[in-house]
Amino acid sequence: MKHVKAINRKAARIEHYGRAETNGSGHAAPADEGIAGGASGGSGGGAPSASGGPKDVVGLESRGPHIPLGCSLVFSPGWEADSSGGTAGLCQPVERDLFDCHYGCFWPVQVPDQLNHSPDWTGKCAAAQKDWRKIDLIFP
C-alpha cells in the first residue's frame, strides 16, 4: 500500500489479509502472524494486484449473509436507481441469484438462450455467488 502504512502488529495482519483477499487467495493464515512474506497468487481466477496488475472483482463476494438488494419499481429495471432513489442498493442479480432474476423478474436479466444455442452455458456454475467467474462468454 502506498498511501496507508501499517504501524503496529495488528495493522500488519490486516494489511496481509487485505492483500490475500484482493489477490483472491481467500483468508489464508499468514506464516508468522502476518508480517513477513507476501500473499500467494490468486486462485479464484483473478490476477494479483500487489504488483500493480489488474485487480480481481471481490465486491460481489463480501462476507456475511447476502441481503437481496431488490429492484426498483420507479426506475425499472433497478440498474439506474435503487428503491430509495439512490445508487447504493442497485439490483445486483449476480450477487443475488442469476436464475431467479432471469425467470422471476418482470425485467429479466439477459442470459443466453439455454434451450437451443447455449445449453451448457452454466455447466460449471453450480452457485452463481461463488462460481460466476466460470460462466462462459457467449458470442452469438
Binding site: 502506498k2 498511501h3 496507508v4 502504512k5 501499517a6 504501524i7 503496529n8 495488528k10 495493522a11 490486516i14
Partner: peptide, 15 residues
C-alpha cells in the same frame, strides 16, 4: 487507530 480491529496505520496526504 482502527476500531474495533485496533490496527494502527500511518496515512499520507492523499488519504
Amino acid at each position: 487507530y482502527m476500531v474495533p480491529s485496533a490496527g494502527v496505520f500511518h496515512i499520507d496526504q492523499a488519504s
